[in-house]
Amino acid sequence: MPKITFIEHDGTEHTVDGEVGLSVMRAAIDNLVPGIDADCGGECSCATCHVYVDPSWMDKVGQPSDREESMLDLNPERESNSRLSCQIPVTEDLDGLKVTVPEFQM
């Protein structure tokens, strides 16, 4: 299974197994990673699963859709590497992915 590492804003790391076909958000929820609430259940409509993708992974993760962009853009603290983790499907290519959970979401 691809490994995904969530880094809290204080540096604490949580490396968990992601399941191919499910989302990065789901990997966090299923492993009780703090700071990922995902109130809407993964439909890109609550923006409580915000992560900063490690810049070296940006190409593999890809770009947000227009809908995701509109949710991200509501947040004054969004960065160029911001994504909603419910919109990133886990693939074998993402084995080793590192994302940071923003302080504002803790």
Partner: peptide, 8 residues
């Protein structure tokens, strides 16, 4: 109750 989407 909080709504969903951009007006949440």
């Amino acid at each position: 109750s909080f709504g969903f989407g951009i007006h949440r």
